[in-house]
Design a protein around this nucleic acid. Sequence first.
DNA 1: GCTGTTTGCCTAAAGGCTTTAGGCTCAGGC
DNA 2: GCCTGAGCCTAAAGCCTTTAGGCAAACAGC
Lengths: 191, 191
Amino acid sequence: MAPRAGLTAERLTRAGATLADEVGFDQVTVSELARRFDVKVASLYSHVRNSHDLKTRIALLALEELADRAADALAGRAGKDALVALANVYRDYAREHPGRYAAAQFRLDPETAAAGAGVRHAKMTRALLRGYELDEPDQTHAVRLLGSVFHGYVSIEMGGGFSHSAPDTDETWSRVLDALDALLRSWPPAP
Amino acid sequence: MAPRAGLTAERLTRAGATLADEVGFDQVTVSELARRFDVKVASLYSHVRNSHDLKTRIALLALEELADRAADALAGRAGKDALVALANVYRDYAREHPGRYAAAQFRLDPETAAAGAGVRHAKMTRALLRGYELDEPDQTHAVRLLGSVFHGYVSIEMGGGFSHSAPDTDETWSRVLDALDALLRSWPPAP
DNA sequence: GCTGTTTGCCTAAAGGCTTTAGGCTCAGGC
DNA sequence: GCCTGAGCCTAAAGCCTTTAGGCAAACAGC
């Protein structure tokens, strides 16, 4: 037993994210984290305000990682290419890191959210839409639609909501993206 | 204090649903429920297997209520009318009963899910699509798309994800439904 | 109306997670 | 080499879950 375990908010957050992917975000507990660092529970409270604070940090980490991946994917792509790439970033991330993805949905208070990477996400979706001809306010509507589809599809799929049925979800995913592309190219005018 | 409080799995489930709407689904606790019935905690365990069982029952109740509303809304409607009506059922339910709506997302084990009202939901969305000309497998793709948009939009909106931005969410919602209607009427053929 | 059984709620108790308060000690600066 | 402070620990209280076993109210049948 080293006299000092070398705890850090940083390290705790990363370990928390890993833990989330292993056992689920809502099973992430200060106690379990302490166990993993072979340290007493109370020791964590010098680095993290409380359980909620820990979860917030994990959420921010996940949002950041997701935004980084999105930025990478979007670089050098446009139009449908970009659409598919961005969509897959979300889906793949959720599959590889279910706990982190769940964390990214953690409800943050407005200030924290504003300071985090949430804004980058919105900006990137807007950038993606540059490939389609949409003026405001339709662009905002489209941003929200895309966000809804991506998040909705991924979360239902991961919850097993599409199981037990015939066409496999990969095929649906691909056809849904085709459909969204078509829709964005011929967005219906306001009534 | 009446010698018997008249507890029932039924009553506990309803009270649990109410509690969920008041304090959030994940704050629903056997202890709090006992407090509300002015009864000792252990007493609830004769009616409900455990905390998870309680939550499952609440989830099934919510799914059932939601399916009932959907059936009502769909009766006598077709095409875009039906689409809008169904979509609003989900959104309105989530707004009126946030806790129940969260409960409806509670992950159920496959058998429980199969026995619950989840199936009715899928059937109704399929029925709605009868107003559009879609053959399999496109119909299934469309069912999944609609489910994703409804759930995704509602859950992001309720999480505050669309706040701080210009066009209000009612307008976006309406334009999104217009767009979905247009999309379903001219669903792109498989490549 | 009385008795016997079932059913419903209670007491008791153990185990886990969270959070705060206060103490000891190792590490690095002077 | 000392001393100050940061880092981890012990202690303790509060709340939630879950199980085991007990007492008494409600109900059946005589």
